[in-house]
Design a binder for these strands. Structure first.
Lengths: 109, 109
DNA sequence: TTAATATGATACTTTTTGGTATCATTATGA
DNA sequence: TCATAATGATACCAAAAAGTATCATATTAA
């Protein structure tokens, strides 16, 4: 079922597409709304949206004549999983988390 | 100093390059050794190595007439950082870590 | 020294990507 | 109804990416 992280990594490789993900993090949007944030045609933005859907990073549903595009962060899972093979860079993030959890459990008990 | 994750994401978008990173995770290698694992010319592999260096994912040092390529996992930092803006997918990974840390601190105190 | 080896560099080809322009389709609102 | 608005689809173009072929350079080993 999971065909690996290829489409996901490819979708993430373009700055416009990453920007779109950031926008969709705040709110779901129509094609027109998304295109309004960029200096390119709707057709170009549409193609980016298709690649983001291929990468399982967004979903969309028709609503009348509009189509609402929504972030699907779970699609990042395969990429994150692949990155997980390289344990080292998790250190910093995990270190701060460890501190947070330890102080938290300290207060609770 | 940090020019953002663009080069890193781009480097990660190709399956051959991700495969190279997996190889280098086990051991540093020369161009010839790496190329030996792929069905393409050395020149092609060389180009992939250049892109991996651009993405700060590997470093290399000349050693006689050979050049040793070494994984530089810290280069993934900017990409991981960007992915960090989407907190949700960390849940699963972080949940298991939380369990591990809590039981650990429980035993210590 | 000199032949072999490993890499570097460059020119060229093909495919993919990112983009525009254009037309078709569908839904909406006056 | 019918003009308009939103999206879908397709053909086309330019630039980047992925790869080959070839030649140059530098190091090693006989």
């Amino acid at each position: 079922m999971n065909l690996g992280p290829q489409q996901t990594f490819r979708a993430l490789a373009d700055p416009t597409r990453r920007q779109i993900l950031m926008f969709l993090k705040k709110d779901s949007m129509t094609l027109g709304e998304i295109a309004g944030h960029f200096d390119m045609t709707r057709a170009a933005v549409k193609k980016h949206l298709v690649m983001l859907e291929d990468g399982l990073l967004i979903t969309s549903r028709a609503e009348g004549r509009e189509r609402i595009h929504k972030l699907q962060p779970a699609g990042l899972k395969s990429a994150i999983e692949w990155l997980g093979y390289f344990d080292q860079f998790w250190d910093e993030r995990l270190a701060s988390l460890k501190t947070a959890i330890e102080s938290e459990t300290g207060e609770q008990e």
